[in-house]
Nucleic acid binder design. Structure first.
Lengths: 338, 338
DNA sequence: CTGTTAGCGCTTTCAC
DNA sequence: GTGAAAGCGCTAACAG
């Protein structure tokens, strides 16, 4: 391994001069700079960040903590985060929590230990608060994306869950649906709570009765065996829903798969809509009616915001950025009800 | 920031003893261990990896270098890699090269600089060789996944492109197609070359004539504007293909999207099949006939193999693991030709 | 079983 | 403009 000492010796200067050249810091004569640069080239020198980090306490590493990269929403978030990070000279570490606060806690410890400069995180829920406080204590800036948690000193990039849900549910109502079920995630996740609340509200605004038998709590996870939906299917005929609002894309996939296995047709027998798109495939065989969120921007902006904190050039007040969803109507909600 | 010195002082032992406790190394009396552990708890001590790395030259960081996390094949690869890495106490850094060797080169430098312990990489092509040699020079083990490059001291996890292609093309032939086009990526990518070669071979075995007008070179990338396919559509009636073999999923998506925009129906007017699946969505509205590869395993095993090299407990000969694809027949190849 | 010394590769500080 | 010394937090190697 080549070090600045090797360079220094060969270039007949002190290690300090080499360091200055590398970091473009302080005044150096054009002549020595050229000389040093030549030797750096020649010896293929690459600086050692571990050593630098030990001094300056910065690693140029960020971490993206998300439930599951396999969820197309988060896939795009990750791409956005990676792009912005790269653009600004950072590396991005990936952590999948699978919605498990324990797992999240383990990752946070590892990240602190590895001295990452900042974290972009979609927390597992309110239980994440204690994990995030560890970041605060260690002075590691973070931005919350997609999911909000109160009273934390951080920027946030959030979607408009009210708007998206309202559009989705209203769309179903406009098509004549009166018995609309919701399948949501635990309510300590802000997106889940907001989507649930707006579902209730939208029914009310339309003078539709709320039936708690049509409310099912599940998880934002893709699952093989999924009998969650049975509660809905076993309802007496007059109560059984004609439409389902799935609180995210994975829930919609679980629902569709299960319904298909039971030979229940979508949308003929039951309509299904959901939050978050399923790109890139949603485009070529348009199926799901969704409230599509600008996933890439969640990652891209979230990363932009942490980096500003890391480099201490952000505004003093924490920011809360809101990104709008877009309703995209496709086949899965096609049927009209008289 | 708490250091081992703080712990040492408070526990009335030497820093070295603290270090030993943390690393579970050497012999320590149960009593002092307990004492030290208590103080560690009390002060919320988290070891500093930068300092440790500087000594032991290990960071417990791996990197996954892939073309694009947004490609569902690589999304799953990433999940597999992240899972295995996590399982064995490593963190995973994500790099998207977008099939660009320059970008790849930049990442490799960054990774060396950050002293990652190992790299799992799907190289951009033969030009990657010089990038990978930098890893060799810096003694950073790596495993090649999905794409092979010759004469490199590394393990590999590869798919069986011959088998997959043969099945796909034969499937089309069995349905009566005689004019089958191929859209492939640059041939310096091993998968592209193998898929192309086997396409040619399979035609030959079936006594079908090879028409170079039906061979189109594109890229393994998803693209907005894509006129690549025009060459095929502008052919005189008697030459125009009745089926297209897309060398990967992104090419298939580009193709379908373009065909749709031109009001050409799939599979009625033209059948399309491709390498790599489009999960998880392929399942609920089964469309594409594909040669599906076990993407998760590429990442999982690739990571397993590097870690063995990193921890120096792998066999002396480099391994070449072969993963089999599975033909999945769906709508996109539905039509029979008389 | 525990402690001391030196040093990993770099940067900070201060001196020239 | 350039250099020497000290130290970041930890561990290897040795000593006791």
């Amino acid at each position: 391994m080549t070090t600045i000492y090797d360079i220094a010796k060969k270039a007949n200067v002190s290690p300090m001069t080499v360091s200055r050249v590398i970091n473009n810091k302080g005044n150096i004569s054009e002549k020595t700079r050229k000389k040093v640069e030549a030797v750096i080239q020649e010896l293929n020198y690459i600086p050692n960040y571990a050593a630098r980090s030990l001094n300056i306490k910065k690693t140029k590493i960020l971490s993206l903590v998300i439930p599951d990269i396999t969820n197309p929403f988060f896939t795009k978030v990750a791409r956005g985060a990676a792009d912005k990070a790269n653009q600004l000279g950072y590396q991005l570490m990936l952590c999948n929590t699978d919605e498990d606060p324990e797992k999240e806690s383990g990752y946070i410890d590892a990240l602190i230990s590895k001295m990452v400069d900042g974290v972009i995180i979609a927390p597992t829920g309110n239980q994440s608060k204690k994990n995030l406080k560890k970041l605060v204590k260690n002075k590691i800036p973070f931005t919350l994306i997609d999911r909000m948690i109160d009273d934390l000193p951080c920027d946030m990039v959030l979607g408009n869950n009210h708007e998206g849900t309202r559009e989705l549910v209203q769309h179903l109502i406009d098509r004549g649906h009166k018995k609309i079920a919701i399948i949501h995630a635990p309510l300590d996740i802000s997106t889940s709570k907001e989507r649930y609340q707006t579902y209730v509200e939208t029914l009310k605004v339309n003078d539709l009765s709320f039936n708690e038998n049509l409310v099912i709590q599940a998880h934002y996870k893709q699952e093989e065996e999924w009998d969650t939906i049975n509660g809905l299917l076993l309802l007496p005929e007059q109560e059984r829903p004609t439409a389902i609002f799935a609180a995210n894309n994975f829930i919609a996939i679980n629902a569709i798969t299960t319904l298909r296995n039971k030979n229940i047709r979508v949308p003929e027998d039951i309509a299904v809509v959901c939050f978050d798109d399923l790109e890139p495939y949603s485009n070529f065989d348009p199926f799901f009616t969704v409230a599509s969120q600008p996933a890439y921007d969640f990652g891209y902006m979230g990363t932009q915001l942490v980096i500003e904190r890391v480099e201490e050039n952000g505004p003093s007040e924490y920011r809360k950025i809101n990104l709008q969803p877009t309703l995209i109507v496709r086949k899965s909600s096609n049927a009209f009800i008289e």
